[in-house]
Simulated scan of single mutants.
Amino acid sequence: MVHLRHNAALAAILTLTPSASAADCTRDGLLSAAHSYLAAQTAGKPSTLLLSSNFTYQQNNKVSAIASGLLSTAYPIALNRSTADTTACASYTMWISTAGAKPFVVSTQIRHANNDTSSIAMIDTVSATTGDLFFDAKKTLGYIQKEDWTDIPVGKRPSRELLKKVGDGYLDMWTDAKAADSIPWGTECERVEGSQYTNPCGKTLPRGGSKKNNGLRRYVIDEVMGSVDVLCQFDSLGAWPDSHEVRVVDGKVKYVHTVTNMRGVGT
Rank of each mutant, 00 (worst) to 15 (best):
R81P: 00
S82L: 03
S82G: 04
S82C: 05
T86E: 08
T87S: 13
T87M: 08
C89V: 13
A90N: 11
S91D: 15
S91L: 07
Y92R: 10
T93A: 02
T93F: 00
T93G: 01
W95L: 12
W95H: 11
W95G: 03
I96L: 09
S97R: 01
S97H: 02
A99T: 08
A99Y: 00
A99P: 00
F104H: 14
V105I: 15
V105N: 08
V106T: 14
S107M: 04
T108W: 03
R111W: 08
R111V: 00
R111P: 01
H112E: 02
H112G: 02
N114K: 05
N114W: 00
N115C: 08
N115P: 02
D116R: 04
D116T: 03
S118K: 10
S118Y: 02
S119F: 01
S119V: 11
S119A: 10
M122G: 00
I123Q: 02
D124W: 06
D124M: 08
D124N: 15
D124H: 15
D124S: 08
T125K: 06
T125S: 15
V126M: 05
S127C: 02
S127E: 14
A128Q: 10
G131H: 12
D132L: 05
D132I: 07
D132F: 09
F134E: 15
F134S: 14
F134P: 04
F135E: 13
F135Q: 13
D136T: 02
D136S: 11
A137C: 06
K138N: 08
K139I: 14
T140D: 05
G142N: 14
G142D: 13
G142P: 03
Y143Q: 12
Y143E: 14
I144K: 09
I144W: 13
Q145M: 01
K146R: 14
E147N: 10
D148P: 02
D148R: 11
D148K: 12
D148S: 13
W149I: 10
W149Q: 09
T150R: 15
D151W: 05
D151C: 01
D151T: 09
D151R: 08
P153T: 01
G155P: 00
K156V: 06
K156E: 15
K156L: 14
K156I: 06
R157I: 05
P158N: 05
P158Q: 04
S159M: 06
S159H: 07
S159F: 04
R160D: 08
L162E: 13
L163F: 04
K164I: 13
K164M: 11
K165R: 13
G167L: 08
G167F: 07
D168F: 07
D168S: 09
D172V: 03
D172T: 07
W174C: 04
T175G: 02
D176I: 04
D176L: 07
A177L: 07
K178Q: 15
K178A: 15
K178M: 11
